[in-house]
Simulated scan of single mutants.
Amino acid sequence: MLQPQWLRTFRALVTTGNFTRTAEQLDLTQAAVSQHIQHLEKRLGRLFIRQPRQLELTPAGHALLDYARELETADQRLTQRLAGNEDSQGDIRLITPGSIGLALYPRLLALQEASPGLNIHHRFAPTREVVDAVLETRFELGIVTLKPDDPRLSVTELAHEPLELVVPAGIEITCWQDLVELGFINHPDGLDMAARLLSRRFPGNAGVSTLPQKGSTNQIGLILAPVARGLGFSVVPRHARQAFADQQAIHVVPAPSAEAEVIDTLWLLSRAEWPLSARAERALAYLRQSLSNEERT
């Protein structure tokens, strides 16, 4: 086990790049700073290349710096968890797919404005990464569209998200051939979403694999940019469409009936072994109310 004081000295030396300034910052003698680094180098090997006016980290030094940062992050998580009864202070860590993240992040920022003591940490990620991040407690909350089956997870229904057929403004879609002539704008989940929605809108169609692809992007916020320019159509979740800036340039083709709609369930994930922090509970209540109001309008 490395002594915490040695690690603090190492981190300070990396920051200052100078033994004298490190000693002043930590209220130590320069000899004590050197001794701490010597202890570490005895255990781990050479940490610095000493240049005339700077210190350069060796591979061992970079590895130790990563280790020290991981310890600091773990310490912060412990502090946050032990302070979990405070609903207006601390970190709210949420990991989600792109479309729902576009909808939730502005809402969470509004919550942070109301309670500046809260710190919002949001990450966009695919389903597998969301599940892993919650299981590894790197994020307290996660949202996915495919319900996982893992006893370590608490899984509850959060909201519903319809898929939408989006075309350029002014374009009418009456048959499958109209889509063929327009062309498809793909994205990481595009073929799956299109297959599920278009099989209901156009029963007996030739299949999405037969549609000419006019482009693709993996950036959820940019999927509808080529659609807005008249370059093709796409199938996206409603939250992704609502977040697009130029609503006048696109058109959502309405479903002819309820049977022609596809509505995905959004599942909320957290670790099953311990209760959510008070701040996470507050954030969830805020988000549920906001999403519920949106679904009713």
Rank of each mutant, 00 (worst) to 15 (best):
Q213G: 06
Q35A: 14
M193Y: 15
L7C: 05
V130M: 03
A260D: 02
G45A: 12
L26I: 08
R50Q: 14
A255E: 04
K147W: 06
A249I: 07
G84M: 08
F139Y: 14
G142C: 04
R271H: 09
P151L: 04
Q80G: 11
L224W: 02
V208F: 01
R53C: 10
L231Y: 14
G98V: 00
Q54E: 14
D87Y: 04
V180R: 04
V253I: 14
Q247A: 14
T29P: 09
Q51T: 11
G207S: 06
L269D: 00
R296K: 15
F48C: 11
H62I: 09
T265S: 13
P254G: 05
L191Q: 06
R81T: 12
T79Y: 09
A195F: 03
K147V: 05
L291S: 03
V252K: 01
V14H: 05
P162E: 11
P226W: 09
V262E: 03
L268E: 01
E41K: 05
I220V: 12
A240F: 01
E140Q: 14
E295V: 15
G101N: 06
D87A: 12
L211D: 00
Q248A: 15
I171N: 06
I95K: 00
A278Q: 04
V33F: 01
K42T: 15
R77W: 12
F184K: 01
T127D: 12
L78N: 11
T9S: 05
P148E: 07
E72P: 06
I263V: 15
L291H: 03
H187W: 08
R77E: 09
